[in-house]
Simulated assay, not measured.
Amino acid sequence: MMLASAACGIGGRKAGGDAQSKVVAKTGVINVVASVGQWGSLAAQIGGKDVKVTSILTSTGVDAHDFEPKTSDLTALGKAEVVVANGVDYDSWATKSLSHEATVVSAGQTVGATKGDNPHLWFSKDARSGMAKELAAVFSKVRPAKKAYFKKRLQQWQRQEKQLDASMQKFAQGHAKTTYAATESVAYYLMSDLGVKDVTPQSYVQAVMNGGEVAPADLQEFQELLEARKADVLVNNPQESSQMTNLLTGTANKSEVPVVDVTEQMPKQYDSLTDWVAALVDSITTAIDPEYGCTSDGDDADGEDSGEAQDSQDGQSEQSEQSDKTDASADAKDSDTSTKQKKYTTGDGDDASQSGNTKSGTEN
């Protein structure tokens, strides 16, 4: 009996050893599903050729706050190995009914934002930086053999973001007294990073945040502020349109206050979140100060193209992808700096006079 027990014991240890030896690290492309295109584009920048990214909400013609995912969207999320979400109640549908094996990367959790905070985190330099690092860490965890590659991609992204941040700081230092008003809170973080003060009437802000009707007196106060040109620029979200915001953008145009359209979702002409934010910065700074512009240094961009060319030797198209990004950024810069018109559009070409916002949960 003792011999039999010993034999069973040995057999048990051997079986356990065989089972452990069969646990092999996953290989192949990581299946990533993002709730919105802007975070999906960042995942693609960090993951490169080793990720396949599917973004659910990508249209600038859809109200993100009322978005309802299709069955196919939920199926894609359920099959994802990594889910990239915004959080802060902006896309709660994205993290429901997920596979237990899925890893969730949430912008809200990354920066500690909670319900009631402004949800448009992709416009925050801190959130973008935190998400880039978190994505690199998660990708490295699920594909340990690719850790060096993801680290390289992160460093490339950080150089681009550093260049963007430098241009924003330069503007902030030279325009300490600039102001803006907004029909909705989409660009709150972006304007804060640019150092531009929000002068939107608080009565209007509170009415919009509470989701109620804006009182005529509140609307009149906003109009008077624009007529007095107390704001250097009016920021408008064309995805949130109403007669009220049409009135405000019309008042701004008549009062020679520039109007800059800022959509919530990334327009299709941009291939990366970095390029989109850079184009918005160009548009806003040029609208405020047409003589200033926002010229970027091409040296780092050239270095990024060289790095991607090396990766493309593996049969990938990353070099052309980076070239497209550079071209898109350059085109946006040329377009923005070559005009001194009152209106600057960075969405899908929607007319500012036809757009605005009355939704709730819009913190300025």
Score class of each variant (00 low, 15 high):
3 L>I: 15
4 A>F: 04
6 A>F: 15
7 A>G: 05
10 I>H: 03
11 G>F: 15
11 G>Q: 11
14 K>T: 14
17 G>E: 15
20 Q>Y: 15
23 V>E: 08
24 V>W: 10
27 T>H: 15
32 V>C: 14
34 A>C: 15
37 G>Q: 14
37 G>T: 09
37 G>I: 09
40 G>N: 05
42 L>F: 02
44 A>I: 14
53 V>E: 02
54 T>Y: 12
54 T>F: 11
55 S>D: 05
56 I>C: 04
57 L>A: 10
63 D>Q: 05
67 F>R: 05
72 S>W: 05
76 A>I: 07
77 L>Q: 03
77 L>M: 11
80 A>D: 05
81 E>H: 13
81 E>L: 05
84 V>D: 01
93 W>L: 02
95 T>C: 07
96 K>R: 09
109 Q>T: 10
111 V>P: 00
113 A>G: 07
119 P>G: 06
122 W>T: 00
124 S>R: 01
131 M>R: 04
132 A>N: 10
132 A>L: 09
137 A>D: 12
137 A>Q: 12
138 V>C: 05
147 K>Y: 08
152 K>Q: 12
154 L>P: 11
155 Q>F: 04
158 Q>N: 11
163 Q>C: 05
164 L>C: 03
164 L>T: 01
164 L>P: 07
165 D>Y: 04
167 S>A: 12
168 M>R: 10
168 M>I: 02
169 Q>S: 08
170 K>G: 07
171 F>K: 03
172 A>M: 01
178 T>A: 07
181 A>V: 00
188 Y>I: 04
189 Y>D: 06
191 M>S: 01
191 M>F: 01
194 L>A: 02
195 G>S: 07
197 K>R: 10
197 K>S: 04
198 D>T: 01
199 V>E: 01
201 P>A: 06
202 Q>K: 13
202 Q>R: 11
203 S>C: 09
208 V>E: 01
210 N>L: 10
210 N>A: 15
211 G>R: 08
211 G>D: 10
213 E>A: 11
225 L>C: 03
227 E>A: 12
233 V>G: 00
235 V>S: 02
236 N>D: 12
245 T>Y: 02
249 T>N: 05
250 G>P: 09
257 V>Q: 00
266 M>C: 03
281 V>P: 00
283 S>W: 00
284 I>V: 03
286 T>D: 01
286 T>Q: 06
286 T>M: 01
287 A>M: 03
289 D>M: 02
293 G>W: 00
294 C>Y: 01
299 D>V: 07
303 G>V: 07
303 G>M: 10
306 S>Y: 13
308 E>N: 07
309 A>M: 07
309 A>F: 12
311 D>R: 11
313 Q>I: 10
316 Q>A: 14
319 Q>M: 12
321 E>N: 09
321 E>C: 06
335 S>G: 07
336 D>L: 06
340 K>S: 15
348 D>G: 11
349 G>H: 04
359 K>I: 04
